[in-house]
């Protein structure tokens, strides 16, 4: 408080040369605006945190896909509950996402045309996820697929693997 009392009046402040000429009014308004800015940023950050849920009640990302013998060779099986295609080729198994990379519609397996088709904007994919036609920007991702201890297939949708990685059984 004693500092503010000893601060010279604005007129004499202009008279005395200094590195920066900042009047008390300008200084206070800058401090106020700065404080408001910091509070605004902090508030925005807190609001963002508040709106990002920490616990989600969504379907689990790992699931068992049953015994490998369920899938005949050279077949594409759509697991509707998980939105995943289990593809078995001569080389082995892989799991392909059934969610279109364009805008998230659920694709459909068309056995007669040997392709995966999206109903929303007409994207078409090969069974291994490569884009044949349409606006889809990326191929369908492959999920990690392994054998559980009891011999069942185990798919982890959180882990995306390269398309050339195939599970041999």
């Amino acid at each position: 408080m004693s500092d503010t009392k000893s601060t010279p009046a604005p007129d004499s402040a202009h008279a005395s040369p200094g590195p920066t000429e900042l009047s008390r009014r300008d200084f206070l308004s800058e401090v106020t605006m700065g404080a408001l800015g910091v509070a605004g940023l902090g508030g925005a950050a807190l609001t963002y945190q508040y709106f990002s849920p920490n616990v989600l009640f969504e379907p689990p990302m790992t699931f068992r896909a049953g015994n490998p013998d369920l899938y005949p060779e050279n077949s594409v099986t759509f697991l509707q509950d998980q939105l995943v295609y289990i593809v078995r080729t001569a080389a082995g198994f892989y799991a392909v996402s059934a969610v279109c990379t364009h805008l998230g519609c659920i694709t459909q397996w068309k056995p007669e045309a040997d392709m995966i088709a999206c109903p929303c904007h007409g994207s078409k994919f090969q069974p291994d996820g490569k884009v044949i036609a349409g606006p889809a920007p990326r191929p369908l991702p492959h999920y990690s697929i392994n054998l559980a201890a009891d011999g069942e297939l185990l798919v982890n949708k959180l882990e995306i693997i390269k398309p050339d990685q195939v599970l041999n059984v």
Binding site: F51, S52, E58
Partner: peptide, 13 residues
């Protein structure tokens, strides 16, 4: 999208 939906999919949130 995550903040707008409150999740990864269109759900209760």
């Amino acid at each position: 999208r995550f903040v707008a939906l409150g999740g990864n999919i269109v759900g209760e949130n």
